[in-house]
Structure formats: C-alpha cells, structure tokens
Design a binder for these strands. Structure first.
Lengths: 241, 241
DNA sequence: TCTATTTGTCTAATGAAATAGACAACTATT
DNA sequence: AATAGTTGTCTATTTCATTAGACAAATAGA
C-alpha cells in the first residue's frame, strides 16, 4: 500500500506508515517470521525520512506486531486478524470458534436509565421507558477484542447485570430467563476512530480505527430482546457476513 | 462523543474533533438545519482551544457538512449517512433503493492479469490463471460512494470490461452472459485509512476512514463468478446486514 | 579477521499543530 | 440605539512532526 506524503489531512505520516505496514501483516502479505524491508528501503517506499519510518516501527514493536534486531533486521511477530462471524444466529463466543482458545466477557458497569430514541425504536418500547444498560468488555485468549454497550427492557430483564456477572455470557443469561434461542434481526456496520476510553480498555494506540456494529437480537416470537453497540479494533478483527 | 487531548496518537486534534462532530451529524444526533453549539462551547467540550475547533469546523464547512454565519452561529447543512444493504441478494443499485435518486457505475480501468492467491481461492481457480481485473467507481446522485476492484475468471468473462462500459452495471453484464440470477456467498468487512488514490477519487479529506468489503458472488449453481474488494467512505455510508 | 549491511543513538533545523489573548464584524433582542 | 452573543482575524508562543546528517553497535558472510 502507498501513502500520502505532502498532504497530511491531520494524520501524522508515522501513523499512516505504521497503519500501512500493519495492514500488510494482518492482511497476510507478510507472514509471521518474515523480515521486513530495511528501514532505508521503507523510507524510500513511503518517501519519508528513515527516522519517521523508525517511529512507525517503534509503534508496531510496542504493539507486539514486529520486533527489531540490531544488525539483522526487523521481523514480523504477530499473526493474522481474527474473523467474527455475523449471521442469523450470532453468538460472540461461537463467532470466534476455532480461532481463539479462551473467550470471556466482563461487566464493566451497568445502570438503569431512560431509553434514548434509538434504543426505544430498536427495542420496540416508548422513548424514556426504563432500560438496563450494560457496559462490557470481551476478551479472547486474554486480549480485549470488543467493547460493547447493550440495552435491555427493564420490565423483562431487571436483574440482567447480576446474572451476567455470575454467568459470563449473554446467551447463558437469556437462557436463565427462559429464552432458549434467539436470533439476529439486524446489524448495521460503520467505522470511526476510537475515543480515549476505548483506546485504554482495548489496549490500542490512540487514533486506532474501530468497526462499530449496531445490532438488534430478537426471541423466537420476533420480540426484540436486546439492542447492542459493539466496537471492534479494525486492526485485530474483521467481520464476516 | 468525547475525544483525546493530551495524547495525539498521530491523529491531529482538529481532525478528531471534526470526525466527532461529523459523526454526530451523520449519526442523526444533529439534524439538518440545527445550530451547532458555539465555538466556545465546543472548545470546552473537547478541552481544546477555540482556534483548534475553528479549524475542525473549517474542514466540515469545506466538505459542505456545516456552514458558519457570522454573528448567528454554525449550522448543519448535510443529511444523514446512506445505508448499504448486504444480504444473499446484494445488488449495488438496489442496496441504496429509496435513498438516492441516481446511481451509476463508471469503469476506471481494466486489464488481464494472473490471479493472486486470494483471488484464485475466492474464484476457485488455480493461482496465476488469467483473470479480468476491473477498477470501478460508483456514484449516487453524482457523489462518489464506492471504489471497487473486481476479479473475474477470464475463461468465462473475457469481454466483461467492454460490456460493462456499455451497460453500466454488473447485474446487467452478468445477464448478458446468461446469468439471470446470482447471490452473495460471503462478505468480509474491515476498516482502514484511505490511501492517496482513494482519497482523490472518492473526494475525501486525507486520513478518512474506509469500510472495506471483500465479497464473493456465486451463480445459481454455486459457481463463484466474481471476487470484489469495495471501499466505502465510513463518513458517508454504513453497511446493513 | 575484515567488510558490508543493518539497527540504534545523538544533534540540529524547519514547519505544522495547538494554545493564548485581544479585538473587529455581524446578528438578534431589548 | 444599545447590548449581549456569536463568528472572523490578527499576533505571539510552545510543543510536536519531519527532515537531515553523522557515527556507534551488532550481525552475517567472505
């Protein structure tokens, strides 16, 4: 991939270079263990100074994506991007089947609030009605993979948060409420930069790109049961429809 | 949305502020005609200097998203983000039904090349086999909405480019080859920054975020017919599954 | 061992990003 | 007409991004 030089557009050159190299790695163009081109070669390729390239490499080294060895070169350390499967039957842990050994969900906080217009429309209730709001972080093999906010109708799921803390998965909590099966009604996908809190919780470098999924799950009767806004680091995940 | 201050992460503050405000607008929090908070208020909200906010607003004004009026305030000019529907039967023009009046596709270039490993796997042919590569740009109401690269098996679609120039749509060209119906086998979605060429063709400001969709279409017999890599500006589009 | 190649470190200079403060120009309201 | 609130413009200063050059330190191969 090539990168702009003269025009910055508010994104620093070292950052664009780091993004371009990371893309080659997570996209599979460079495999684990491969040696990157030399700093001089990269500087030429991106029409940048060697110091600027070094800064980009330092960021990637910090992320654990590459590692430099004096006298030898810089080598690819990390693996490919994970794929998250989206379909009628979307479950977080199952979506990553076979790609990560351990997945876990963790409740950051929860509270009762009045439904925003968006949440109310999605859940089929009136704006301002009481809803449970859950802030969660999901991990795979110990690495944070998504930061999600979910809203549920308070009348049906008053103690959702308590049960989630005990059970650790949405699917399990729904089951405890007698909802043995549920499915995905709609998913809207967009992308934006991460904000401070997301950067911190997901262990990203500031300015990282997030894939944002806005999903509504329904029970077998077609009744909306949850409205969730999930944020995935684009550099570590891709969504598969 | 909040925004980082102290830590830049290689993305300039004015750019992050512009992105945050644009997100509020295309996300529907601010409607067309609404007055934005005053520059002073925005400066406080983002913990930034008023001049930095002014630079962000200048960018948005340049994009036509907002307009400032001396003595009165700054107002929202543009509309919401378009939704692009993805499913079993995905057609570019139909995906935008009801949201844009005129959609058109334009061939930038095409050539015969040897299939990359990714393209070969997707199309079910051997690596290095001859494929037709199409570079296209799609517009809705005159505004560029996607930049796509598509690969097709040369043995079946040798003259795809010629027919596309004449017919202006993939669906029409497939029909001319006797493929009356086809469907989407898989879609992978990721996100990254736009490169120079994409920035220019899509009319974006440098550093803009793209949603990248990697799709395989198959005919009724299940035979892969095309492999396409489409890039959508995240600030103008969202994908709906 | 010698040499070419590669990453690591230091100093310096230039331009862009961000902050700060002051005041002009315009609008709407009283 | 006066006033408060808002955007527009100017000057100045500090911090960060980028370029430039030189040389040290480690590695691999002849």
């Amino acid at each position: 991939m090539t990168v702009a030089k003269d025009i910055s557009g508010g994104v620093a050159l070292w950052r664009r270079i780091a993004d371009a190299i990371r893309l080659d790695i997570v996209g599979g163009k460079l495999a684990s263990g491969d040696r990157l081109p030399t700093e001089a070669a990269l500087a030429e390729r991106f029409s940048a100074n060697r110091h600027t390239v070094r800064r980009a490499l330092a960021v990637l080294a910090d992320e654990g994506v590459v590692g430099a060895e004096q006298g030898r070169g810089t080598f690819v350390r990390s693996a490919r991007r994970l794929s998250y499967r989206i379909g009628k039957r979307t479950r977080f842990s199952e979506g990553l089947a076979g790609q990560a050994r351990v997945t876990s969900g963790q409740l950051l906080s929860s509270r009762i609030e009045n439904a925003s217009a968006a949440a109310a429309t999605a859940l089929g209730i009136r704006t301002g009605a009481k809803v449970v709001r859950m802030e969660t972080l999901s991990l795979a093999d110990g690495r944070p993979l998504s930061r999600a906010t979910a809203w549920l109708d308070y009348r049906s799921f008053a103690d959702f948060a308590g049960r989630y803390t005990a059970l650790g998965s949405f699917t399990a909590v729904f089951a405890s409420y007698g909802i043995g099966d549920y499915s995905r009604a709609s998913t809207r996908i967009s992308a934006r930069h991460a904000d401070v809190e997301e950067t911190k919780l997901l262990g990203l470098t500031p300015g990282a790109i997030l894939l944002v999924s806005e999903a509504v799950d329904i029970d077998v009767a077609g009744q909306p049961i949850s409205y969730a806004l999930s944020r995935f680091p684009a550099e570590r995940m891709e969504l598969v429809v």
